[in-house]
Design a protein around this nucleic acid. Structure first.
Lengths: 106, 106
DNA sequence: ACGGTATACATCGTATCACGAAGTATATAT
DNA sequence: ATATATACTTCGTGATACGATGTATACCGT
């Protein structure tokens, strides 16, 4: 998928991936795979950004001798998703403009 | 509108704006305004990029003592729009994932 | 015992890109 | 005279996705 097209979607995808239950990096990547592929470096950058923006909180959990960092969405994270949904109407208007491709109906 | 969300749309918007008839910078901005706002610096960056990528051709026209650069879409530019439409299904799948927000239907 | 693969997170550098700021220049309206 | 609209250009910056690379453990097959 086109990199630029992903840019406005990734943050919200990650938030959606942890919306219903806390999750961790590796699992998020797997869960999102059917919809959008992202590398580990991309994901951890996003998680860090979302944490800085208070969209989620982190807690470390020992698992099988390894460390896992579980991410939990915050109220602001939920709000971010809602705002995205609102923005979507503008996106659809743009898409309509592109597929029509002419101005005969203004 | 969210900057990141625009990123995957702007190139195609500009191409759409010149699809049916050649146009020039200032007019493109005005024509796109109802759908997406972009500054002059953004537009000219995009036009340059699209030209470099052979998505459009340019020709200068004298108008009222001022110079106007008219942009015409190429076959590759048209192809770019078609590819965008194809990509759109992935975008919709992502959107559905976000608004559902749960995995009870996998 | 060894090698490969999966799990799990981290960091660095780079390329792309939207945008504000500032500039140049002409025509028209107040 | 001043402001506004038209029209294009250049520069610098910040945001961001991603490949490359690294660390570390567990498991499975031969």
């Amino acid at each position: 998928m086109d990199v630029q097209l992903k840019r406005g979607l990734l943050d919200v995808c990650v938030l959606t991936a942890i919306k219903n239950e806390d999750s961790y990096g590796y699992k998020i990547i797997k869960d999102l795979k059917p919809y959008v592929e992202l590398s580990e470096s991309t994901l951890y950058t996003i998680l860090k950004r979302l944490e800085t923006g208070s969209m989620l909180t982190v807690r470390s959990v020992e698992h099988d001798g390894r460390l896992r960092k579980y991410y939990r969405i915050t109220a602001m994270g939920l709000k971010r998703i809602e705002e995205f949904k609102e923005e979507w109407e503008k996106v659809l208007a743009i898409y309509q403009f592109v597929i029509k491709g002419d101005k005969e109906n203004d």
